[in-house]
Write a protein that binds this DNA or RNA. Structure first.
Length: 270
DNA sequence: GTTGAGCGTT
C-alpha cells in the first residue's frame, strides 16, 4: 500500500511515522505524499482502509526518513486544510511494530524537539489538539486499545455523546479510561448487585421487532388511534380532543391504555 | 450519497 510498490511496511528501522488525522475520507496517499514530501523525505505514506468496505478511515500514516523533517512537517502541515478539511499531523505513537519502533527512535522525539518557539499563525486552528496529551499514553497496553478497536468502530455513537466538545473538556484521551471504566463499572455493578438480572445478560438487544407481542402494543399503536381520531376530525375544529391533550403535548407515555375509553368521566357519570 | 474519533498495511 505504498507508492513504492511495496506491499507491507517498508523499512521502519530508521523512519519516523507521522499520524495524519482529520483527513477527508477521499483523501488518498497520492494527495498526501506530495504534501509531506515537500517538507522532507517521505519514506512511505499509508492510509488505513476498511477491509470490508475499503473506505479510508480518515487518517493516514506518513513515514519520514528524518525526525527533524518529520517534526517540521508536523508543524507545517498540522492544521493545514487539505481537501477542504483541516488535517492534524502528529507523531505516531503506536504502530504495528510498536516494539521495534520503541527500540528505534520514535520514543518521543516530539518532546525533545519541541522548543515551542514558533509563533506560527495558527489562530484559526483550535489548539485543543495538544499532542502532549499522549505523553505517556504510549505505555499503555496494547490490549487496552485493541479491545474497542477490533470490536466495532462506532464512531457515530461516541460522536453523539461527546459531539466534538473536546475543547470544553480539554482532556481528550478519555477513550481508554472510558473503556476501562466501563468494565470496572460492570464488574462492580455485578459484584455489588449479585441479585442482578444475570439470568438475561444478553438482553442488551432491544429487539426492535415489529410485533414482539400482539398483546403489548407499542406506544405507536397507542398513538395510532389517537392520531386517527385527530385526523378524523376535519380541519374545521382544531381542538381534537380537549381531554385527550389538555396541556400535555407529550404523547402518552408507556401507559398502554389499550382501552379506547380513557374517559373515566363516563364511569363516574354513571 | 452518508460518517469524523483515532494509531497502521503484504
Amino acid at each position: 500500500m505504498s507508492h513504492f510498490g511495496r506491499s507491507g511496511p517498508p523499512d521502519i528501522r530508521d523512519t519516523f511515522s507521522l499520524l495524519v488525522l482529520n483527513i477527508t475520507f477521499r483523501t488518498t496517499a497520492d494527495d498526501l505524499f506530495p504534501l509531506f514530501d515537500k517538507y522532507g523525505k517521505v519514506v512511505d505514506v499509508f492510509i488505513p482502509r476498511d477491509r470490508r468496505t475499503g473506505d479510508s478511515k480518515g487518517f493516514a500514516f506518513v513515514r519520514y526518513k528524518y525526525q527533524d523533517e518529520a517534526q517540521k512537517a508536523v508543524e507545517r502541515l498540522d492544521g493545514r486544510v487539505v481537501d477542504g478539511r483541516e488535517i492534524m499531523v502528529q507523531f505516531a505513537k503506536y504502530g504495528p511494530n510498536a516494539e521495534r519502533i520503541h527500540r528505534g527512535r520514535i520514543e518521543e522525539p516530539v518532546s525533545r524537539l519541541r522548543p515551542r518557539g514558533k509563533s506560527r499563525s495558527r489562530s484559526p486552528r483550535p489548539r485543543d489538539r495538544d499532542h502532549s496529551r499522549r505523553s505517556d499514553s504510549r505505555s499503555r497496553a496494547k490490549s487496552e486499545r485493541d479491545y474497542p478497536r477490533d470490536r466495532h468502530r462506532d464512531k457515530r455513537y461516541r460522536s453523539r455523546s461527546r459531539s466534538r466538545s473536546r475543547s470544553l473538556s480539554g482532556s481528550p484521551g478519555y477513550r481508554r479510561e472510558r473503556g476501562r471504566g466501563k468494565y470496572d463499572n460492570d464488574d462492580e455493578r455485578r459484584r455489588r448487585s449479585p441479585s442482578y438480572r444475570s439470568a438475561s445478560p444478553i438482553r442488551r438487544s432491544p429487539s426492535p421487532r415489529r410485533s414482539p407481542s400482539p398483546n403489548k402494543t407499542h406506544p405507536s399503536r397507542d398513538g395510532s388511534p389517537t392520531m386517527d381520531n385527530n385526523k378524523k376530525r376535519p380541519s374545521t375544529s382544531i381542538s381534537p380532543s380537549p381531554r385527550s391533550r389538555p396541556d400535555s403535548p407529550s404523547p402518552p407515555p408507556r401507559g398502554r391504555r389499550v382501552s379506547r375509553s380513557p374517559s373515566p368521566r363516563s364511569v363516574a357519570d354513571e
